[in-house]
Protein backbone atom coordinates (compact mmCIF):
# COMPACT_ATOMS: atom_id res chain seq x y z
CA UNK A 1 0.00 0.00 0.00
CA UNK A 2 1.71 3.14 -1.13
CA UNK A 3 -1.40 5.31 -0.99
CA UNK A 4 -1.66 7.98 1.66
CA UNK A 5 1.49 7.30 3.60
CA UNK A 6 1.97 9.94 6.25
CA UNK A 7 5.18 11.96 6.07
CA UNK A 8 7.04 9.93 8.67
CA UNK A 9 6.67 6.79 6.55
CA UNK A 10 4.56 4.73 8.96
CA UNK A 11 1.98 2.52 7.23
CA UNK A 12 -1.13 4.47 6.35
CA UNK A 13 -3.73 2.59 8.37
CA UNK A 14 -1.55 1.52 11.23
CA UNK A 15 -0.90 4.26 13.80
CA UNK A 16 0.00 3.33 17.37
CA UNK A 17 -2.09 0.73 19.16
CA UNK A 18 -3.98 1.65 22.36
CA UNK A 19 -5.58 -0.77 24.79
CA UNK A 20 -9.08 0.23 25.87
CA UNK A 21 -10.47 -0.20 29.38
CA UNK A 22 -14.11 0.47 30.18
CA UNK A 23 -15.85 1.07 33.49
CA UNK A 24 -19.27 -0.54 33.00
CA UNK A 25 -20.88 1.44 35.82
CA UNK A 26 -19.88 3.88 38.53
CA UNK A 27 -18.06 2.13 41.32
CA UNK A 28 -17.02 -0.82 39.15
CA UNK A 29 -13.41 -1.44 38.17
CA UNK A 30 -12.24 -0.70 34.63
CA UNK A 31 -12.06 -3.81 32.45
CA UNK A 32 -10.06 -4.41 29.30
CA UNK A 33 -12.38 -4.51 26.28
CA UNK A 34 -10.11 -4.37 23.23
CA UNK A 35 -7.83 -2.05 21.35
CA UNK A 36 -7.90 0.76 18.79
CA UNK A 37 -5.41 2.41 16.50
CA UNK A 38 -5.07 6.18 16.84
CA UNK A 39 -2.60 8.97 16.19
CA UNK A 40 -2.87 10.38 19.70
CA UNK A 41 -4.62 9.93 23.03
CA UNK A 42 -7.52 12.21 22.16
CA UNK A 43 -8.30 10.32 18.95
CA UNK A 44 -7.81 7.02 20.78
CA UNK A 45 -10.53 8.02 23.26
CA UNK A 46 -12.94 9.03 20.50
CA UNK A 47 -12.27 5.83 18.55
CA UNK A 48 -12.68 3.76 21.72
CA UNK A 49 -16.04 5.43 22.37
CA UNK A 50 -17.24 4.74 18.82
CA UNK A 51 -15.99 1.15 18.76
CA UNK A 52 -16.70 -0.05 22.30
CA UNK A 53 -19.44 2.17 23.71
CA UNK A 54 -22.13 2.62 21.07
CA UNK A 55 -24.82 1.41 23.49
CA UNK A 56 -23.96 3.05 26.80
CA UNK A 57 -21.72 0.15 27.79
CA UNK A 58 -19.68 2.34 30.08
CA UNK A 59 -19.39 5.39 32.30
CA UNK A 60 -15.67 5.93 31.78
CA UNK A 61 -12.95 4.90 29.34
CA UNK A 62 -9.20 4.62 29.67
CA UNK A 63 -6.85 4.30 26.72
CA UNK A 64 -3.27 3.19 27.33
CA UNK A 65 -0.50 2.83 24.75
CA UNK A 66 -0.21 -0.94 24.24
CA UNK A 67 3.56 -0.64 24.43
CA UNK A 68 3.22 0.70 28.00
CA UNK A 69 1.59 -2.47 29.33
CA UNK A 70 3.88 -4.92 31.08
CA UNK A 71 2.52 -8.41 31.71
CA UNK A 72 3.70 -11.53 33.47
CA UNK A 73 4.79 -14.41 31.26
CA UNK A 74 2.36 -17.33 30.84
CA UNK A 75 5.25 -19.83 30.76
CA UNK A 76 6.29 -18.70 34.23
CA UNK A 77 2.84 -19.01 35.76
CA UNK A 78 4.04 -21.74 38.18
CA UNK A 79 7.18 -20.14 39.62
CA UNK A 80 5.77 -16.62 39.38
CA UNK A 81 2.75 -17.28 41.59
CA UNK A 82 4.51 -19.92 43.65
CA UNK A 83 5.05 -17.68 46.71
CA UNK A 84 1.28 -17.78 47.36
CA UNK A 85 1.00 -21.56 47.15
CA UNK A 86 2.07 -22.54 50.67
CA UNK A 87 0.39 -19.76 52.61
CA UNK A 88 -2.90 -21.26 53.64
CA UNK A 89 -2.73 -19.09 56.77
CA UNK A 90 -3.73 -16.11 54.59
CA UNK A 91 -7.23 -17.57 54.33
CA UNK A 92 -9.84 -17.47 57.10
CA UNK A 93 -10.52 -21.21 56.79
CA UNK A 94 -7.04 -21.82 58.24
CA UNK A 95 -8.19 -20.71 61.68
CA UNK A 96 -10.23 -22.77 64.07
CA UNK A 97 -12.86 -21.19 66.26
CA UNK A 98 -14.58 -22.80 69.27
CA UNK A 99 -17.51 -25.00 68.28
CA UNK A 100 -20.83 -23.16 68.24
CA UNK A 101 -19.38 -19.64 67.97
CA UNK A 102 -20.51 -17.50 65.09
CA UNK A 103 -17.52 -15.47 63.89
CA UNK A 104 -19.40 -13.42 61.32
Amino acid sequence: MSQGKPPDGTPDSQWPLWEVFIQPQYGAPHEHCGSVHAVDAEQALLNARDVYARRNEGMNLWVVPSSAIVGSTPEDVGPFFDPANDKAYRHPQFYKVPRGVKVF
Binding site: Q3, G4, D12, D40
Partner: peptide, 20 residues
Amino acid sequence: AHEEGAWVRAAAEAHAAKQR
Protein backbone atom coordinates in the same frame (compact mmCIF):
# COMPACT_ATOMS: atom_id res chain seq x y z
CA ALA B 1 -12.91 4.20 0.03
CA HIS B 2 -9.41 3.44 1.30
CA GLU B 3 -7.72 5.72 -1.21
CA GLU B 4 -10.22 8.53 -0.77
CA GLY B 5 -9.71 8.34 2.99
CA ALA B 6 -5.96 8.83 2.64
CA TRP B 7 -6.15 12.59 3.17
CA VAL B 8 -8.12 12.12 6.41
CA ARG B 9 -5.44 9.79 7.76
CA ALA B 10 -2.70 12.16 6.64
CA ALA B 11 -4.49 15.12 8.26
CA ALA B 12 -4.92 13.27 11.56
CA GLU B 13 -1.24 12.36 11.52
CA ALA B 14 -0.22 15.96 10.76
CA HIS B 15 -2.48 17.28 13.53
CA ALA B 16 -0.97 14.85 16.05
CA ALA B 17 2.56 15.82 14.98
CA LYS B 18 1.70 19.50 15.41
CA GLN B 19 0.24 18.87 18.87
CA ARG B 20 3.35 16.95 19.90
